[in-house]
């Protein structure tokens, strides 16, 4: 379980203080899927970075599995079971897909284990395992690898920041299947997905709407989703790709 208590993040911009996250209180229960939505620039990614330790909160506490992790660094939080798929995947030079999966899983992976994570995101292991994680991969490929890396973590809290962005060929059906499998998975754990997509909002246990750094609304999916339909916080997209069925990149 993750608890954010009165969490704030202020930065100085041109000498003026700007509050990007304002007094956020949020509980993410075990084995629940929370979808965070809200307008661009509202602070969703920042909130995810505060949880992962990439940005440090300026006040408030973060409690994870009963432990106060507010003062812990990125590595320590990762080791305690927090995984984070970036909105913009990072590129490297020389580091291969298999290297990243190995680091993520924390052990020597054999080919079939690595294959499992890659095929879950619709990539043929044979073609991708030895690929370098650099600009030779498309945005969609990088995004899928980013998701596969988080799957390989097997973490107790997995955060995905706009996982559907840039994934054009691969249908939502497959992406959603990945999240549902994670939720059903034997390991349990909670999932936070930042997304505007109605199809993803639809599989949420709870929806949180963030605007101007504050929680505008939160509650069970059935209560919150109807209020969002037709707004930019619940976009109906990729019908075409969906109709064509999932296409794996092979």
């Amino acid at each position: 379980m993750l608890e954010l208590l009165n969490l704030s993040f202020r930065v100085a911009v041109d000498g003026k203080e700007k509050e990007i996250i304002k007094n956020v209180d949020l509980t993410v229960p075990d084995d629940k899927l929370i979808v965070v939505t809200g307008p661009n620039g509202g602070g969703k990614s920042t909130l995810a970075k505060l949880i992962a330790g990439i940005e440090r909160s300026t006040s408030g506490r973060i409690i994870f599995k009963g432990e106060d992790i507010t003062e812990l660094g990125i590595t320590e939080r990762a080791k305690r079971g927090i995984a984070f798929a970036f909105q913009q995947p990072v590129k490297f030079k020389g580091i291969q897909v298999v290297d990243l999966l190995r680091i993520a899983s924390g052990k020597e992976l054999n080919a079939s284990e690595a294959c499992e994570f890659l095929s879950a995101v619709g990539l043929c292991a044979r073609d991708y395992i030895g690929r370098e994680i650099n600009a030779s991969l498309s945005g969609g490929e990088l995004k899928r690898i980013e998701i596969a890396t988080v799957l390989a973590r097997g973490a107790s809290l997995s955060i995905f920041d706009e996982p559907e962005a840039g994934i054009d060929l691969w249908s939502f059906r497959n992406l959603i299947e990945v999240f549902e499998q994670m939720r059903r998975g034997s390991k349990g754990g909670s999932i936070i997905i930042i997304s505007h997509q109605e199809r993803i909002l639809n599989i949420a246990d709870e929806i949180v709407v963030i605007k101007n750094g504050e929680i505008l609304r939160r509650g069970p999916k059935d209560e919150v989703l109807p209020t969002l339909i037709g707004t930019s916080s619940a976009v109906v997209g990729c019908r075409k790709a969906d109709a064509e069925g999932g296409e794996a990149i092979c």
Binding site: A52, A78, K79, F92, G94, T149
Partner: peptide
């Protein structure tokens, strides 16, 4: 690149281990 270090740290590596991985990959 700072974001490379951060990415590997979110996978559980210390900053120093992350640095080593990045250098090893770069020189591979």
């Amino acid at each position: 690149a700072g974001e490379q270090l951060v990415k590997l740290m979110t996978l559980g590596l210390t900053e120093q281990q992350a640095e080593e991985q990045i250098i090893n990959g770069f020189l591979k």
